[in-house]
């Protein structure tokens, strides 16, 4: 990965070293996946997977196709309900987690295949990220009075800050269906950021991007983590990106956990090399 895309992370070869530049960046454990087992019929997508995520860190989940990475994210924010295991999040244990509980407790996410609201403008898409924070009653909204009006303006201000941050001012009022792929990915990140999440789940944020777009996206991910202190759990196939951005990496293969540790530890783990990175050994 190019150095301009991941300069701050480049100085974090290990989590311990990473804290030197930014002391206390990484805090306590906020999320624990505990013995998650998830079956689709006879297929075991996840078997007995456990790992944790600490506050403020960038946590990556890697693995070959079909390893269960996306299923893991879907379990964390309650879209899939696993047969066994529980999600411990901010002091409470959920088995299973539910989408609404996840969303209202500050877990936001983006999707591998962009899941934007195609008929709506960029602005409206990002405004949907604020829906849980808007409390106006139906009557106030229909008459556009009181909170119906003041909330629209107040949240518009916040959304505009997200738009400025992601540098998508020019497409503010364009329907997202008309935007190029890279921008759509950015709008989707914006929608997740608008919710001011505690934990941000990114499912392949750089899939299908060219080098330049990947650099931009890496920069946004680092900035989100650094300026807003948002904890990030991401799935990514680009090993350069993963190794540069992450504080800790968990490796899945065929639904089970293969390794867990700092990028260096994972890189040198023989099981990972065998199963995933595909380096021949004799």
């Amino acid at each position: 990965m190019n150095d301009s895309g991941a300069a701050p992370a480049a100085e974090t070869p290990t989590a311990a070293a990473g804290t030197v530049g930014r002391p206390n960046r990484i805090g306590e454990v906020i999320l624990k996946a505990e013995n998650i087992t998830m079956r689709f019929g006879g297929v075991k997508a996840l078997s007995d997977v456990s790992f944790d995520v600490r506050r403020g860190e960038v946590r990556s989940i890697i693995g070959p196709n079909g390893a269960g990475k996306s299923s893991m994210l879907n379990v964390i924010n309650g879209f899939y309900q696993p047969q066994e295991g529980s999600i411990w999040y901010l002091g409470k244990s959920y088995s299973p987690m539910r989408p609404y509980i996840a969303a209202s407790n500050g877990i936001a996410r983006t999707f591998q295949n962009i899941a934007l609201f195609k008929g709506m403008s960029t602005l409206d898409n990002i405004m949907t990220g604020r829906i849980l924070k808007q409390k106006a009653t139906l009557a106030e909204q229909a008459l556009y009075i009181g909170r119906g009006r003041s909330e629209e303006i107040e949240h518009r201000e916040h959304v505009e800050r997200v738009i400025d941050f992601l540098e998508i001012q020019a497409v503010r009022k364009t329907p997202v269906g008309r935007l190029p792929y890279g921008l759509q990915k950015r709008v989707e990140l914006g929608r997740a950021l608008a919710a001011e999440p505690t934990l941000l789940l990114l499912d392949e944020p750089m899939a299908g991007m060219n080098l330049e777009e990947k650099e931009d996206m890496s920069r946004f991910i680092i900035d989100v983590n650094e300026y807003f202190g948002t904890t990030i759990a991401l799935i990514e196939h680009d090993m350069g990106v993963v190794m540069d951005l992450s504080d800790r990496v968990v490796v899945l293969d065929y639904g089970s956990k293969l390794a867990d540790g700092t990028p260096d530890e994972v890189r040198n783990n023989q099981a990972v090399i065998d199963a995933y990175l595909g380096v021949a050994h004799d």
Partner: peptide
């Protein structure tokens, strides 16, 4: 949001 992508809408809350 429900019309365009109901799954994403649900995960937003």
């Amino acid at each position: 949001a429900i019309r365009d992508m109901d799954i994403a809408a649900e995960l937003i809350g």
